[in-house]
Structures are given as structure tokens and as C-alpha cells.
Design a protein around this nucleic acid. Structure first.
Length: 171
DNA sequence: ACTGAACTTAAAA
DNA sequence: TTTTAAGTTCAGT
């Protein structure tokens, strides 16, 4: 296997459960929702606060601020997206550009990523999104419905609600 | 190496 | 309204 740099997983306790963050030398490689991972006994990960230096504190603070309904972002260079398919990265970058409180369709994202017809691939990229919340896959909806969400639509609705957006129902 | 599925969509039948 | 084709990646077979 292509050995990525050493991965350091942390737990980030918040008002909405225990999130999981994985750091590498290049930055943040993964941020996942509570419950979507670590099935069974929690591996007793170290807490992120005060670790990974300024970046760790910044992430924890930004995460908690967002779950509190405030807007907060992380710089794009802070994300470790190495060894990810180029098209996926373009899609993620397009999503990253969606402003707080706004939503786009999969079609618009695909177009922004340079392949207007690769709508379905854009959907797959959403599902493969490694940095939940800061790569806002929850702001991408289907043309006539809510679209899907890997960790459960309830999460998508909840994250959007924090930004004052209501997930529209399917007709 | 091929086939089908994946957080889709627009257009044709 | 149902079916189909389309672009990209990954998991199976």
C-alpha cells in the first residue's frame, strides 16, 4: 500500500457528540461525524485540544463554533488531500467555494469542477468527502429533492439547519 | 479486464 | 411517467 505519512487520530468532544479528526504531516486528512465510525468500543483516542499545536486548537475551535451556528472556516491548504483522485479534488474545491448558508445542486458542482455531465461522479465525490463540514458536502442537494448523505440524511438536515437552511423535501 | 453501483440529471420514449 | 445515456472512481467478479 502507498504508505501515507503517519496518521494521528484524535477525538473531538463537542455539543453534538464525539467527532474524529485524523492529522498527518501535511495537515488534516479526515474529519468524521460521531457514530459514522469507530463502531463498537471507542478506542480511547487522545483529545485534540492542545495537541497538533495551533492547528489542532484552531480545528477544535472552528468545529465547535460551527456547531454553535457561527460561521468558521479552515484554510484550503490546511487540508491533506494527497492521493485522492484529481476529479474528486476539483469537486471538493468547488464545494469549498459554496458560501455559508447557501446550497448548490450536484449539477452545478459538476459544472464547476469542469465536467458538466459528470453529475453522478460529483455525487460520488460527495460521498467520499473526507473532511465533513469544512468541505461542505451537506450544502449540495439534488435538483428536485434532498439528495443523499452517507452518514444519514438526519445529519445533512441538522448541519444545514445550523446555517439556517431547510432541507427541501422530495416531490 | 469487465461490469455495476454510487449522495444525479436532463432529455427522449 | 418511465427509461436511458452520460462522466468518474471503486468494489466485485
Amino acid at each position: 500500500m502507498p504508505r501515507p505519512n503517519s496518521e494521528r487520530p484524535y477525538a473531538v468532544p463537542t455539543s453534538l457528540g464525539r467527532w474524529r479528526a485524523v492529522f498527518t504531516d501535511a495537515g488534516l486528512r479526515e474529519l468524521s461525524l460521531p457514530g459514522s465510525r469507530g463502531g463498537g468500543a471507542a478506542p480511547a483516542l487522545p483529545k485534540l485540544d492542545g495537541q497538533e499545536g495551533a492547528w489542532g486548537r484552531k480545528l477544535a475551535a472552528a468545529l465547535r463554533a460551527r456547531l454553535d451556528g457561527k460561521r468558521a472556516d479552515l484554510p484550503w491548504e490546511f487540508l491533506d488531500l494527497r492521493e485522492r483522485p484529481p476529479f474528486f479534488i476539483r469537486v471538493w474545491k468547488a464545494m469549498y467555494a459554496i458560501p455559508f448558508g447557501a446550497v448548490r445542486t450536484y449539477g452545478q458542482i459538476a459544472a464547476a469542477a469542469g465536467s458538466p455531465n459528470a453529475v453522478r461522479a460529483a455525487g460520488q465525490a460527495c460521498g467520499a468527502n473526507p473532511i465533513v463540514l469544512f468541505i461542505p458536502c451537506h450544502r449540495v442537494v439534488a435538483a428536485n429533492g434532498p439528495g443523499g448523505f452517507g452518514s444519514g440524511l438526519e445529519w445533512k438536515a441538522k448541519l444545514l439547519a445550523l446555517e439556517g437552511v431547510a432541507l427541501k423535501e422530495k416531490v
